[in-house]
């Protein structure tokens, strides 16, 4: 029996040591930068991250985002931003940044018990 598994949606592909998977960053000349795409689904909603794509520049990134992520009229507005321009909290800082707010339950409306009869709360 081959060393194969039904991983991924379209079925069986081989696994095992002969399939290299080393993550590798490289700056080959032909690579276009990675853009992250945010789409406003409809008026009144925030832009939401939907995925990424590669494009040579901002203008082409907008075209590609329109063609790829709004093929079925999913959006009324698109933001694209180069992935390298996004500043994110680092996993190392996870605890100092997020753990404190985990304690502050008083920020959440459910912290407050309201008698059932009170309207519009």
């Amino acid at each position: 029996m081959p060393d194969v598994t039904a991983e991924g949606g379209h079925g069986a592909v081989p696994t095992g040591p002969e399939v290299p998977v080393e993550p590798r960053r490289r700056a080959v000349r032909r690579d276009w930068p990675l853009y992250e795409v945010f789409v406003r689904g409809k008026r009144g909603l925030n832009h939401v991250h939907v995925g990424s794509l590669h494009a040579p520049d901002d203008e082409m990134a907008i075209d590609a985002a329109r063609d790829l992520y709004t093929r079925r009229n999913e959006g009324v507005s698109i933001w694209v931003v180069k992935a390298v321009d996004i500043t994110a909290s680092s996993p190392d800082e996870k605890d100092p940044l997020f753990a404190p707010s985990g304690d502050k339950v008083y920020r959440h409306p459910t912290f407050y018990e309201i008698p059932e009869g009170v309207p519009h709360m």
Binding site: M1, P2, D3, V4, T5, A6, E7, H10, G11, A12, T15
Partner: peptide, 12 residues
């Protein structure tokens, strides 16, 4: 066959 080999032959 798209689902891959039978479970007893699917080590991963």
């Amino acid at each position: 066959m798209m689902f891959g080999p039978p479970d007893d032959a699917s080590p991963n």
